[in-house]
Each structure stands twice: as structure tokens, then as C-alpha cells.
Design a protein around this nucleic acid. Structure first.
Lengths: 196, 196
DNA sequence: CCTCGAATTGACTCTCGGGTAAGTTACCTC
DNA sequence: GAGGTAACTTACCCGAGAGTCAATTCGAGG
């Protein structure tokens, strides 16, 4: 933005962090396909080639965001699975997700970005994280369904997708109400779950 | 695809219907921003300029899809609102939605397409339909919340968003399992709702 | 059978965004 | 203070996709 070339004294590590933060926000709001690298550079106050010099490509940049977002989520959700009844387990899982997402709520949208090109390496990586989360979610789901009985495998798949639809909806709502803290969200989600 | 110009004897009205069908599928799967008019033309077995001669622009094409998708949904959902307890009302509403969506499940994704450019006329039109559906959904939501009490306006907004997240998740699941009929979906959704 | 309009196309332009080449500034070291 | 290197930029290339133009074929009236 200065118009002049030459270093500004910001070390690579710190710059990379700034870029990743802005990229996560941009990818999270517009999705991979709509996000523009130039816009990400703008937000970070630098120029496009610097982004390309640190991360090789748009894919590389997204992948870096993914690798920062995915593992903490998987780990937190796995740690939240205790043998308690369905509603409580759902609430615990949501609490773990909100806590993990506190620094960057957009990270969820990155893992569940529907606009990444099918078959691309980034889609495969995202799918790995999603599959891990899916497996964890399916446990709670089948437990809930088993209580009532009379269901088939497709019902299970449907309810799992509904569950992630619920999480996604809550996270998106959070993104639209950034003033809310993670604790606020946990409290709200508990009230909402109780109402069902 | 013939390679030759000249009429193929298909009257405008029928061609428009074909184009709209393919456009709905394409917009529904890839979203407005990713959908390519050339690809829509391909699927319909015609060339791009014909699409532009019937619908003026990509916006015009999307708008036509919107106007075919929105009103039936709003009307069906409105008609499904009876003064019954929360769970039952949700099931009724879902049944109305699935029935309306039977010919083209992608129509839901068109009304809720997150990739339409903000501020554009098509976004404003889509927002109108969404707002209508939202108002109807909010009635059921506030009723559900009132039963337990101790909630605020933000909780209401959150639960409304969650409700539409649930519907969207179910419709998306349907799109991935096209062999299911509307009746199948209604039965599944009822089982799932009962399990909560 | 001749013309007129509707249906239809190949081939073009223009813009936008990913990606690159080559150069510029500042600091650090000897 | 003369390199060398890390942090930066401007200016460009190129492919994809929206949108346009001029021509071509066919069927229906006179």
C-alpha cells in the first residue's frame, strides 16, 4: 500500500500469520472459489506476489488454513465424547467446538467449504477432516436413533448430515454476531437444545 | 451440438422450460457464482447465444429460476402452519417443503444460494422469499421457545437460523439421494424429528 | 416457389482473477 | 561502505467465462 518496494521489517513468520488470518476470514466468508488472493493481500496490507512467495499458490494458502483449522477441531470434538445421554453429548460437543473456534469462527466454514474444486488435493484434505468429525458425530447419532428404534442406515446418514447442518448454522450465526463470546454461544446453544 | 445453425423445430416455450430445468440443477449444485452459462447450454443440448436470446443475462436466467422456485415454497409453507404443538408443526412444514420440491429439489438451494453477489437485484429478490419463509418459521420457533422460557431475542434468531439449517441439510441429503421420493423423505424426516 | 421471421450457431470481444518476471529497498555482515 | 540476502512492489501474461454479432437453416404464409 506504500507504493514503494523494499522490506518493511516484518519477519516472514509474523507476515505469514497475518496472511493466514486474513485468508481464513476471506475463505470463510466467500468460500475458496470466490475468494480473491488480491483481496486477501489487500486486507493484510501487502501485495499479491508476497502472498505467492510465502504460500505457493491459492491452493497452498487454503491448505495452510485447513491445516491450522482441522486438527484442533477434530481433537476437541474427540475429547468431548463422553458416555452421557444424547442431548448432553450434543451440548458438550458444541461447547468444545465453540471454544476451539473462539479465535477464528471462520475455521469451521473452511473445513466445510462447499466451493472447493471436486477432486482437488485440498478437497481431499478437507474431506479427511470432515470424515474424522463425521465418524465422531455418527456415534452420537446412532445412539440417539437406537433409543427409538425402527430406523435404517439411510436415516442414520440423514441425521448425521442434519447434525452438521445444525452446527454449521450456529457457527454461521456466530459469524454474523461477532460480539458474542464462546461462553455466550455455549449458553445459547444449551438453551436451544433444551427447547427441542 | 449438431454443428449446424438453423432451427430444430423446438418452440420457444418448450426450450425455455428445458433451459430453466438445467439452469436450476446447475445453479443448485454449483451456486450462482460458479455456474457457467455455457455449461447450462451444454446440458440443454444447445448453444450459449440461444440462452442469452431467451433470458437476457445470467442474472435474468437466475431470476427466472427464482421466480419459479420461490412462490410455491412460500405458499406451501404458509398453508402448512396449523396451531399444533412444535414438533408436529415442524413435521408438517417439512412435508409441505418436500412435496413442493419433488419435481426439482434444487429449487431450495436457489432460494438459499449464498453465492449471489451481495446487493444485486437477484439477491434482493431471493432475500424477499427468504424473509417470507423466515417469518413463517419464526412463529413456530418462538412458540417452541416460549414453552421453556428464559430466552432472549437473539436466542430466537439463532434457533430460526438453526431451523433453516436443518431444512437445508435435509434437502441437500435428498439431492445426494435422488432415488428417494418425497414420501420417503417425509417419512424419514418424521422419524428423525421423533428421535430428538 | 419465394420470402419472412423464428430458431440456432461459430467466432469474436472484454473483464477478472490466478500466477509470474524482474526489479527495488532496507538491513546485516565483514 | 560494499556485497548479499530477505522483504517487498509494479507491471505484465494467460485462461476462463460473461456477453455480443453476423450469418445460416428451416418452416409457414402468400
Amino acid at each position: 500500500m506504500t507504493g514503494r518496494a523494499g522490506t518493511k521489517g516484518v519477519p516472514r513468520e509474523e507476515r505469514e500469520r497475518q496472511i493466514l488470518d486474513e485468508a481464513a476470514a476471506e475463505f470463510g466468508t466467500h468460500g475458496y472459489a470466490h475468494a480473491s488472493v488480491a483481496e486477501i493481500a489487500n486486507r493484510a496490507g501487502i501485495s499479491k506476489p508476497l502472498v505467492y512467495s510465502y504460500f505457493e499458490s491459492k491452493d497452498g494458502l487454503f491448505l495452510a488454513c485447513l491445516h491450522r483449522a482441522g486438527p484442533p477441531l477434530v481433537q476437541a470434538v474427540a475429547a468431548a465424547q463422553h458416555p452421557v445421554p444424547g442431548r448432553q453429548r450434543a451440548a458438550d460437543t458444541l461447547a468444545a467446538i465453540f471454544t476451539t473456534l473462539e479465535p477464528r469462527p471462520h475455521d469451521w466454514s473452511i473445513v466445510y467449504d462447499p466451493t472447493v474444486p471436486a477432486g482437488s488435493p485440498i478437497e481431499q484434505q478437507a474431506r479427511k477432516y470432515r470424515r474424522a468429525l463425521n465418524r465422531l458425530g455418527a456415534v452420537g447419532v446412532s445412539e440417539v436413533l437406537a433409543d427409538v428404534g425402527g430406523y435404517d442406515a439411510k436415516d442414520e446418514s440423514l441425521l448425521t448430515q442434519v447434525w452438521f447442518g445444525v452446527v454449521t448454522a450456529m457457527v454461521r450465526w456466530w459469524q454474523q454476531h461477532p460480539a458474542q463470546t464462546a461462553s455466550d454461544m455455549i449458553a445459547r446453544s444449551q438453551r436451544v437444545i433444551a427447547a427441542l
